[in-house]
Amino acid sequence: MKQILFVVYALAWFSQLAAAQQKTPPKVKPTTKTAAKLVAVSAATLTAGKAVYTQNCLTCHMADGGGVERMNPPLNGTTWVLGDKTRLVKVVLNGLEGEDIDGESYASVMPAFDALTDKQIADVLTYVRNSFGNKATAVAPAEVKAIRAANKK
């Protein structure tokens, strides 16, 4: 018990010391790979992605990507958009229903958008991942193609 207490005290002391030395909190640096891809998002892709968004997504997720309370989930600041690309591409290919998003339940149904081409899906997801305050790597048409091929409905 005493040993544990000592460890706790020591840790607390070290962390205080560390905090004193480092006045600004450490920033999470993007990996070089991520940084390279972030730069690679072209204006043309964003424009094309916005057009796909306006035609297919805007009614429910709204012009600002903020969604509708308890009906349609927001697209900003969520791991569903910013995280795993495979999961995200599958949402577009298969639709989504009955899933809680970040602890919130949403009543509406998202239909499948598998009629969109690989490029359209890549463009719209790249646009969504880099709009509404989001910043994340681009989605390439080849990635969509691979996920679609492996997608079991």
Binding site: G95, S108, V109, M110, P111, A112, A115
Partner: peptide
């Protein structure tokens, strides 16, 4: 047949 699906 498919809720909210275009053309369904």
């Amino acid at each position: 047949v498919k809720d909210r699906q275009k053309g369904s």
